[in-house]
């Protein structure tokens, strides 16, 4: 019913996070609406199972709400925080599942093509990243070399350590480290403008 015009009137993530820290449920609902698709997509990518992904999202926002007084909302970084939290909770769940291999396959072993993960939907809310940064990030992601991407994804979505990735890919540890660093560096460069000027 409120339906604010998309850009100017919309509170930034950081303002919403501060309001959440102060106990404002409607701010949490707004953050949820902004990050539902992202947190779900991350959980889905890790877990490959819609029910598990939904459980993960419930857990993530429960934790955001129940630990709200512990956040220093002034320091912001809401998107990074929720991304990391969703990943972390999904990987917890993945590990528990792998401890019961009779129930599920080993999801982290061989990721199926991304296209089968979810039905196509609207892109993430524009307020999450500004459009220039989004384009830069998209270009950097598209420009990752295959070996860089493989190492990054095993680390991020399967929760493997560098050492484990080296074993998995049968490559020297140093090579894996440099793939990860190079890949991350290009992603970091894509964000450069945001970090210099943006979110303070």
């Amino acid at each position: 019913m409120l339906d604010p015009p998309a850009t100017a009137a919309a509170a930034t993530d950081e303002v919403l996070l501060q309001q959440v820290a102060g106990g404002d449920r409607r701010a949490l609902e707004q953050l949820y609406d902004r990050y539902e698709d992202l947190t779900y997509a991350i959980a889905m990518r890790v877990l490959r199972n819609g029910a598990d992904a939904e459980d993960t999202v419930v857990e993530v926002f429960w934790e955001l709400w129940r630990a709200r007084e512990r956040f220093d909302a002034r320091r912001g970084r809401c998107r990074t925080y929720l991304t990391m939290l969703a990943r972390s909770r999904a990987i917890d769940r993945l590990r528990r599942r792998q401890a019961r291999p009779e129930l599920h396959g080993t999801a982290a072993e061989a990721p199926p093509p991304l296209a089968e993960v979810a039905s196509p939907g609207p892109a993430p809310d524009q307020t999450v990243r500004c459009s220039e940064t989004k384009a830069e990030v998209a270009a950097a992601l598209a420009g990752l070399r295959t070996d860089e991407r493989a190492a990054l994804e095993l680390s991020f979505y399967a929760g493997l350590t560098h050492q484990e990735i080296a074993q998995r890919l049968d490559k020297p540890l140093g090579t894996v480290k440099s793939h990860i660093r190079r890949g991350l560096m290009s992603l970091r460069n894509a964000l450069g403008g945001l970090q210099e000027g943006g979110e303070q």
Binding site: L38, I42, R45, R79, T80, A115, V117, A138, A142
Partner: peptide
């Protein structure tokens, strides 16, 4: 790291 999910298909 948090940019990696940017190219995931969104539900």
């Amino acid at each position: 790291w948090a940019t990696l999910p940017d190219d995931l298909p969104m539900p």
